Amino acid sequence: MTSNPTWVLSRFPVGMPVPDDFTLEDRPTPVAKPGELLVRTLWLSVDPYMRARLSPAKNYAVGQQIGEMMMGGGVGEVITSDSPQFKPGDIVQADDFGWQPLTTVSAKTAVRLDPEAAPVQTSLGCLGMPGLSAYFSLLHVGRPKAGETVLISAASGALGQVAGQIARIKGFDAVAIAGSDAKLDWCRSIGYRAGINHRMAGDLTEAIAAACPSGVDVFLDNTAGPLHDAALLNLNTFGRIVVVGTVARADKFDQPDIGPRFLRRILVTRARIEGFLLDDFEAQYTEARRELTTWYRQGLLEAREDVAEGIEAAPHAFIRMLKGENFGKQLVRL
């Protein structure tokens, strides 16, 4: 194979990304360097964190540069290997997949998957980065106690659907915020007690108060924006807000995040607002993956997926995820 259609960043998005921010180039098949694997891509993941990388602004991770190949999480089959740890035919997951059918990944960061244990694409969803993020942000940062109310935004998304089910398993009172009644129906089916359709709710502060009559103890904030402000006004004394994502600001990424300043509310409730990055918990990944996999195999953890088909669909899948149009974990199948 000498042709390898590859998506590159053609310009930094202004506001919400659009398809013209990306270009599909016909590139040759890459050659694996020492320490790399040549892999046939089976699945690509598109995730909210990727929006922050499409900007010249300083970020916690190295940003994507103009003309560079788009990168993200993926699953693929090893074609050639320079590492004794992997052989042709192995199925691997890594976070440095290029948006191309044949790509190279580092053997140091690749993880061999067992297709018999779970569908391989779950390593990009409920058993991968989103699942781990749900696990640690809820249990290790939010630290809810049995019976406490946990409010979760983007509740039907890749992270939110896992967090809601962990809350159910652990005996917390889970309340969902999502963008449609169909998404809320799904959330209730997996263990959320109640739900709020933020597109139809009107006054969000009142809607949260009605769904959480005892107040909010932990808010898992996957969106930022007005939902954050409304949750804060319903926060109980010593409540916790875990800032996991800011996808609601995908169309205003380079603008100041200005809203009401509820400092008096924070003072009176003695609230804790803490940012979350998954990398801080790397030493505990193995334990968390083991527990998530056990729940999955016991049927306690479900995973809804939203699958786009073909390499051509990658930018469109990414953009629709940022707009909240996906239903479940957004994936691209090659």
Rank of each mutant, 00 (worst) to 15 (best):
G164Q: 02
I169R: 04
I169L: 09
A174L: 10
V175G: 05
D181G: 12
A182I: 10
D185R: 03
D185A: 15
C187I: 14
C187Y: 02
I190G: 03
I190F: 08
G191I: 09
Y192R: 03
Y192G: 07
R193H: 08
A194T: 11
L204S: 04
E206Y: 00
E206M: 14
E206D: 10
A209P: 03
A211W: 04
S214D: 14
G215Q: 07
F219C: 06
L220R: 01
D221F: 05
N222R: 05
T223N: 06
A230H: 01
A231C: 06
L233R: 05
L233T: 13
N236M: 13
G239L: 09
R240D: 08
V243H: 06
A250P: 02
D251M: 09
K252N: 14
F253K: 11
D254Q: 03
P256D: 14
P256E: 14
D257F: 12
G259F: 08
R265P: 02
R265M: 06
R265A: 12
L267N: 02
A271D: 04
I273K: 00
G275H: 02
D280G: 03
A283L: 00
Q284W: 00
Q284G: 00
T286M: 00
E287D: 02
A288Q: 02
A288T: 03
R289T: 13
R290C: 13
T293M: 11
